[in-house]
Design a protein around this nucleic acid. Structure first.
Lengths: 129, 129
DNA sequence: TTGACATATGTAATAACGTTACATATCCAT
DNA sequence: ATGGATATGTAACGTTATTACATATGTCAA
């Protein structure tokens, strides 16, 4: 077992995101956890930071919000892309080796060392379109 | 000539971004334009909104900041990707038809109607790496 | 078991980013 | 010149994120 246990606050934040049907802002998470004793944004941001490091949670940059990772556990995934429905808020997570490869190629020939890549498609999902 | 003239505020904001060596936040733009009479964030956001619509400016979602488009004028470009150096702040703009095609394919088979796509690579540029 | 260090937590204050609401001005076609 | 659309000015507020500082808890080695 490589996995380190989550702390109490990390568990609370992850559970909140897992139960949600869509992305939540840090402040929404805070509000949902006031009953559990949360009082300040930092409690949420600190838990999110650890969860992001472990890939259990993703940050949606174009939304300033967070979602639980759709995949099981800690399995390392490559580049993840997100499709975000602006009507219903649903987020689909997918990856594409070819896209990943093309971006790697660009980085290679430009000498750019990539640390993190964000791909977010905003629009309307099949149900809402 | 299809192009509509920019207003005074739009011109000021675009010039500020064009002169900058990297992305600027709306509030940094505001500060740089106080001498020209800017007093409130809304003056900046309103100008940015129009400039974004016309493709003269891009918003970097992962930075909450804005850059002047690297290309000439109003020419419609497809999907644009950004590589953002976290050391020197320099931003490179590029596009890749294959990436664009793959994302379109994904949208097609998922029934997702894309309105806007964000691709941002954070890391270090060739000079800084 | 104690002491030293790293990690986690609690709390307040503040900074940074963005929007709503409302009033006024300017442009342009009729 | 007047009516509508667009642009601007200003204040207040809402939302997102960080800094600073104090306290607690866990781990490991002497």
């Amino acid at each position: 077992m490589i996995t380190v246990d989550l702390t109490k606050n990390q568990t609370l934040v992850l559970n909140t995101l897992s139960r949600a049907s869509g992305p939540l802002s840090a402040y929404t998470i805070l509000d949902q956890l006031r009953a559990e004793g949360f009082r300040a944004p930092l409690q949420v941001y600190r838990a999110l930071e650890k969860l992001l490091e472990r890939g259990l949670v993703h940050r949606l940059e174009s939304l300033n919000a967070f979602v639980a990772c759709a995949h099981d556990h800690d399995h390392a995934h490559g580049l993840t892309a997100f499709a975000i429905c602006e009507k219903c808020g649903q987020v689909s997570e997918f990856s594409d080796e070819i896209v990943e490869g093309r971006l790697k190629d660009w980085a290679g020939k430009s000498g750019f060392r990539a640390a993190k890549t964000t791909i977010e498609i905003r629009g309307n999902c099949a149900n809402c379109a």
